[in-house]
Design a binder for these strands. Sequence first.
DNA 1: TGCGGACTTGAATGATCGCTCAAGTCCGCG
DNA 2: CGCGGACTTGAGCGATCATTCAAGTCCGCA
Lengths: 204, 204
Amino acid sequence: MAEADTRTRILEAARRLFHEQGYGATGVATILREAGVHPGSLYHFFRSKEELLAGLLEYYPSLFAPIVSRPIEAAEKEAVERVFALLAFYRKGLEESGCRLGCPIGNLALEVSDNHPEVRPLLERNFAMWSGTVAGWLARARLRRGTDLDRLARFVLAVMEGAVMQARGAGSLAPFDAAVAELRRHFDLLQERAGASRARRRKR
Amino acid sequence: MAEADTRTRILEAARRLFHEQGYGATGVATILREAGVHPGSLYHFFRSKEELLAGLLEYYPSLFAPIVSRPIEAAEKEAVERVFALLAFYRKGLEESGCRLGCPIGNLALEVSDNHPEVRPLLERNFAMWSGTVAGWLARARLRRGTDLDRLARFVLAVMEGAVMQARGAGSLAPFDAAVAELRRHFDLLQERAGASRARRRKR
DNA sequence: TGCGGACTTGAATGATCGCTCAAGTCCGCG
DNA sequence: CGCGGACTTGAGCGATCATTCAAGTCCGCA
């Protein structure tokens, strides 16, 4: 892990620190220390702190499939349950960090989108990949006629981000669980009279 | 407006600047300039920038009723429509700012909750007041038996915050509208076979 | 008239910010 | 061997950061 190439070490340090403290609150000096790198090296690969952020937002999508979506696809075959496994993934992150660590993209989206408009397309690409994955899963689900899958996937993303935000604000998982439970209800209603058959639901 | 007392002028300047640029990205010097105040005055009322933030989070709830909830209650009598009028309020804020200005509390929640844990209770109080208002409205709605109003209100808040976040990231209202449309569908399903009567729906 | 506390003034502080750059190391290729 | 480009080193830049404080103004009350 320490023998990764310099650029990747910088990105990994920035990823962790931006996630934990935010973009503005993280000084370049801290990134340098954590990455074990000197200023000149960082500024060899990235012209500015802002370009480092852009590099990170281009780096994120390459992590999503191996770390998030593929393990879920391997462990859970049923479409709707995959969505809730994805939410459970974020819940676990909250739980293990005492409701401190949420969605790294979401944090950056709110902090950075105004002051650095040039990263907006990169934020949107991350959101689009996330909701696109969910929409792909849901294509296999039996839902009410007329369900717009992209819209539903955007909705799931909104619920996740809003639920994470409330949990971080409250320092408690309760609002997260409440939002997810209500989302479950929405899916129940969407499946209720979907195809008449196969009301396959889960144990837990 | 300029003749408000000093403490309020500082809070108003901080409110606007934190909303537009975020907490970390806003320098104390900028707040001082916008408020037309000298450093000593600010530090007379607030011991630190962080206490100013806390003061702001205590100040916010006093704005919610007169600016947000009461006008909605006056203009819209039907419970569920009040919820969507509230969402339309945030949509208007996004639209008028080119998808830059979202929910001020949500921004602060993500930026600040980790690094300044002592403001967490204040964030939660703001969220609780928001969702409490929504839950109060929904008490008059005819929804499916077994609907948990607090849970549903937390869900609405999550959708709103997540939808605002996506709109700001994308620089477009489309994801916001998508999430709200799906939330409308959820309410439609909750009302569908609620009390059999009074399926009062709206024109627009 | 004079005292005291609330509030204002504004220069100054040390720390930290993002960033630069000249010098140097290293390695592949001729 | 020798050239050139990729990358590293690390001291140091000016700017800005949040904050301090001694001095001063103002006003209600005695």
